[in-house]
Each structure stands twice: as structure tokens, then as C-alpha cells.
Design a protein around this nucleic acid. Sequence first.
DNA 1: ATTTATAGTGTAAAGATAACACTTATATTG
DNA 2: CAATATAAGTGTTATCTTTACACTATAAAT
Lengths: 229, 229
Amino acid sequence: MSPIFYQKDVHLVAIDCIIMGFKDNDLHILTARRPFEPFKGGWSLMGGFVNANESVNNAAKRVAAEFTGISNIYMEQVGAYGDVDRDLGERVISIAYFALVDIELFDRSLADKFNTRWVKVSLLPQLVFDHNDMVRDTIAILQKRAAIKPIGFNLLSKEFTLPVLQSLYEAIYQESIDKRNFRKKILGMEILEKLDEKDKNSSKRGAYYYQFNKEKYDQLVQQGLHFSL
Amino acid sequence: MSPIFYQKDVHLVAIDCIIMGFKDNDLHILTARRPFEPFKGGWSLMGGFVNANESVNNAAKRVAAEFTGISNIYMEQVGAYGDVDRDLGERVISIAYFALVDIELFDRSLADKFNTRWVKVSLLPQLVFDHNDMVRDTIAILQKRAAIKPIGFNLLSKEFTLPVLQSLYEAIYQESIDKRNFRKKILGMEILEKLDEKDKNSSKRGAYYYQFNKEKYDQLVQQGLHFSL
DNA sequence: ATTTATAGTGTAAAGATAACACTTATATTG
DNA sequence: CAATATAAGTGTTATCTTTACACTATAAAT
């Protein structure tokens, strides 16, 4: 009766990464023209296979670093996608991860090497296999997670202005937010530090730069206080 | 350069099910004495391997049905667990699912067959491998999910009393809830139907039975209203 | 008839969220 | 150098949501 006496089936296990960046007031996803059959030339997420000697989490980090040139990326697992014929070539079980990167750190030489492009989430084309499902599930997770954890900062440079931070949250939630209410709430948390410099690119007056204070945040969490936007 | 020219590694892919039931005012998880090495005799979740010809979701349903005798179980994926040495015998990537069952429907003959037992979540022993992590992650998901979706009803019989429903939510959130506030909220959603019979087992006065009206709930969701407890 | 145990019920205070419009700073232009 | 144009920055009020809180009702058992 015991399964140990049967031959157990083995599977190809892949990683697919939903690599997200923020620019031009919009969330973007790194996509590539798929270089292999099946669906050669179709738009695809960044992927790779899990090797025998690496954890699934490490495989995801490896893949994300390979296509962006960035290490230490913030990543979360989205889930396993396991329909028998989800990959039309052969059976592959894929584990999807989303990655939040500061798009400024992206190594642009890799865009040529891998034929990748940052596309707006709102203008995402049809992707191969079930990759659109993965993106949809990612956005659902991101909306929930961003509301209760300060993960949005991973999408910004270390220094950012409040108008940019607000437009990031508007992009994530896909709805506009009242400026005064947003500032009241985010500044009320006391996890941001106001700097003396201003960003004068987007307005004549200029907007002050802020930076996220992780130490203060961790301290507040320990006191039982919670991020909530 | 293309990975297609390399031998790709293949993996054993397992399912582990966190099968949850509700009785005696507490959440319970189905556990079994593990019948194989490694860790033969250790407490374990219900597991199995994904076959070549079945989707991962179907494998999870198969495993859950095999150990409970119940089909059409409410299940959600918890995530993939992929450390290289998480299973000390051989490398196995496991995909965990939680299942919510009406414990009354459990086929008790299977408890003998598989040497399983329902144990209180609050008294869960140490489990083999990373199974305790899976349980912890399940409870975190369950707490969030139960707050925004009426999934708790999957743990109850079709007819239930409000005191029982409240104790279910108290068990999920691991905190006590004010009786009046709870009733106000849940009845205010208008997704419950009051029946004429009472349950007289737990009190002299008896508590009215209610049942969940899924049609009404779906209708309200379409109108943009949301469950929130 | 009395006791006992759980079911059932409403209101008010506090806190969170949502709605709303004008002033300020500064680069650019005439 | 005065006027203009543009985005940054700032408080208050109303509404809704959440929380806190204590007594009455029902019916079985004695």
C-alpha cells in the first residue's frame, strides 16, 4: 500500500518572476520575447528552472538577479501553478514570485542581452502560458500587502518625494487618493524622515525628499503598532 | 547559452494538506503518525506525491479526499516549500494546501486505516520536517481570509447556531469577540437565514439555527458589498 | 415555584475615514 | 522685475465604523 513501493513521478520545476518597477507614475513589469519554442517570440515573464542543488527561494533570487543585475531584491512567493498542460511543450510545474525593484538599479545592458522590456501593468499584452494569471494574482497580493506593510519603498530610490510616494500607492491601488489624507496618514506613522533637499524636476516649487526609516518602523512594530494605508 | 541545451533537473513534488475541522469550540488539524522513514512515527500532515498526469490542484484534492473520505472540499494553496533539505530523506518540493471540512462528514474508519487524529491547533505537537511552518502560514492566511470572505461556514454543518459561529471566529482569530457586536455585524450582512428549529444541546433555552445563503451573498458581492468580520 | 445556564438584545462614546479649497514657493515669461 | 503658471503643502468637519458595556428572556431541571 505504501507509496514507497511505487515509482514516484518526477517533474520539471520552473520559476517565473513578476519583476515590478515604478516609473512615469505607473507600475511596470519586466517582460521578454520568449527565445524558445513553444510560443517563440511571445511575451513572457522572466523564468528559469530550479536546479537540484538550490532551494526554490534561491532559484527565484537567482532568476531575478540574472535578468535585472540586482541582488538583494525584495521577493515574495505568489504560488505554484500546476495544471498539467499549462506549458504546452512539456509538463512543467512553475512557482511564481513577485519582485519589487528600484528601476534605477536595473542593468540596462541586460535588456539587450535578454530582449526584455518594461511594460506598464495597465498596458500589459497577452503573455504566454498562464503568465497573465500570475500577474493578476501578483497584483491582488500586492494590493493587500502594500496596505499593511511598507513594501512600496522597495520600488523607489532611497530618497523620494511625497507626491511620488502617493502616485506609487495610487498605481498599486488603481485609484486616486486625497493628497491631504495621504500625507496625514503616512506622516502620522512617523516612519519617514524629511530631508533638506528638494526635487525640483517635477515642479517649480520643488518637493522635499524623504526617506524610509526602517529602524523606527521595526521599533513601532515591536510596540504593536501597524502600518496601514 | 540557452538552458534548452542543458540537462534540466527534475524533482519529486509532494502535496501536504493542512486539513482543518472545528469541534469542541476549537480548530483542529488532522495529523497522522508517519508510516515511513525518515521520522517514522513522527507526527505529520497528510501528504502524497503529485503524479505526472494530474494537476497540482487535483493532487491536493485527491490527497484531502483520500484521508477524509470527503469530496468537494474547500481548499486553498498555502505555498511551495522548497528548501533543499527540508525533507531529510531525499529532495522533495512540497506544495501545501489548507482544507476546511465539516468534521461531521469525516469518515472515521479512515482514522484507523491511516492512523490519524484530530488535534487542537492550540495543542499541536512538533511535526516532522517543515510541517509546523506550513501550519503557521495556514493560520496566518486563514485569519486574513476569514475576515473578508465567508469561508468559515465550510467548517460548520449546514445548520449552525450563532453562538457556535461566534466561537468559530474566536478560534480563528484567537481572541474573544463581543456577542452583541458580532451578531450586529453578521446579521447586518443579511447573508444568514434564521430557521425555526433550535439547538437545545448547549442550553436550556436553545439557540436558533441559521444557514448561510450563498445566493444572497453572491448577489451582494455583485453589488459591490463585501463580507467583513 | 425556584433555580440555573445560556440566548438574545440596544445605545452611546471613541476612533477612523472621507470629503473638501485655499495658500505657498519658485521657475518662467513678458 | 512684475506677472503668471505650476505643483507642493496645509486643517477642519462630517460621516461612518468600531468598541465598550449590562440587563432581560427562555426553558429545562430541581
